[in-house]
Nucleic acid binder design. Structure first.
Length: 112
DNA sequence: AACCTGACTTGGC
DNA sequence: TGCCAAGCCAGGT
């Protein structure tokens, strides 16, 4: 799989995260086929800008927001609007709101 | 090509 | 729980 395909897979995976749920950068990277590429996912999102992507549903492995203050505020606002709850420490309980990966795009399968 | 950076993650204290 | 260090890997200088 080339980088372009992987990038598209990442975007597709992110789009498949349901409302009210969150996924980590590492999780997205792995589901898209490249474990240990969490940072690349972050870079892709930065380049992608908004583009109607549910970027706010992507958080770090601890359920915290990996953005600068201003942007994080917007991300939190959007998540709370979807029903995601933040704990007193500002983190999300991934056991409750973490996405299990179900419903993501079908694995790359050769067209019949 | 060496070196720095970063929307990350994990393991130790 | 919180902070640090190290590991990670593609991009930018």
């Amino acid at each position: 799989m080339n980088d372009d395909d992987w990038t598209r897979a990442v975007l597709a995976t992110i789009r498949s995260v349901p409302s009210g749920r969150v996924a980590s950068y590492g999780q997205i990277a792995a589901l898209a086929g490249r474990p240990r590429h969490a940072r690349q996912v972050g870079r892709i999102l930065r380049n992608a800008g908004d583009r109607g992507l549910p970027w706010h549903r992507i958080v770090n492995g601890q359920g915290a927001l990996s953005l600068d203050r201003p942007a994080a505020r917007e991300q939190r606002r959007r998540l709370e609007a979807e029903g995601v709850e933040f704990r007193p420490n500002g983190r999300i309980d991934l056991r409750k709101f973490g996405w299990d990966g179900s419903g993501r795009p079908a694995p790359r399968v050769k067209k019949a």
